[in-house]
Amino acid sequence: MNKKCILAALAVTLALSGCANVSEYRPMIDVKGVDGAKYEQDLSECRAYAQRINPQSEAVIGAVIGALLVAGSVALALDSGDYLGRSAGVGAFAGAAKGGGNAVAAQRKAVHQCLRGRGYSVLQ
């Protein structure tokens, strides 16, 4: 895989991770005794806090780490640099997906914790 393919894989992953955020995320809560208007305000504020976690930057970090780990492992295992570019591309794509996914999960967890801190019973 050449540099253009690696960059294309990263661009696709970053674009997808950019679509995934908590701006529309609605966790399941126990609504018994909950003031709907107050909940909507609290949810909006909690989402804003969670959006400080950036899936795109986590995807880039994951891509770099993935590329280095996979390319290094393949080079050591095969004792050759022949597949170095391809393996770096695969590692970059996988690392970016994992990094972006972890950041989205962290955003959701932050929303849950914020809502719990405000007294809501978050079920999922």
Rank of each mutant, 00 (worst) to 15 (best):
S73A: 15
G95R: 03
L115S: 06
L123F: 05
G89T: 05
K38C: 05
L78F: 06
G95S: 05
S87T: 14
K32I: 12
V70M: 14
L16V: 14
L84T: 14
A94H: 05
Y49V: 13
L7K: 10
L10Q: 08
G81Y: 08
A11W: 01
K32A: 11
C5E: 12
L43M: 07
R47Y: 05
L115I: 10
V90E: 05
G117E: 12
A106F: 00
H112F: 10
V34K: 03
D82P: 02
Q124H: 09
V34F: 02
E58N: 13
N2D: 15
G119P: 11
G99E: 00
G91P: 04
A97L: 14
A20D: 06
P27F: 08
K32S: 12
G18D: 08
F93M: 15
Y39N: 06
M28C: 04
V70W: 00
N54T: 03
V60W: 00
V64H: 03
P55A: 12
Q51N: 11
A103M: 07
Y49L: 14
S17R: 09
I53Q: 08
E45D: 13
Y39S: 06
M1P: 04
E40D: 09
A97Q: 05
Q124I: 04
L68E: 02
R116F: 02
H112G: 02
C46T: 03
A9P: 01
A105G: 02
H112E: 13
V22R: 00
K32W: 07
A71I: 01
C19R: 11
F93A: 15
A9M: 14
I65W: 01
N102H: 02
Q56A: 11
S44W: 01
Q107E: 10
P55D: 13
S121Q: 14
A63N: 04
R52G: 11
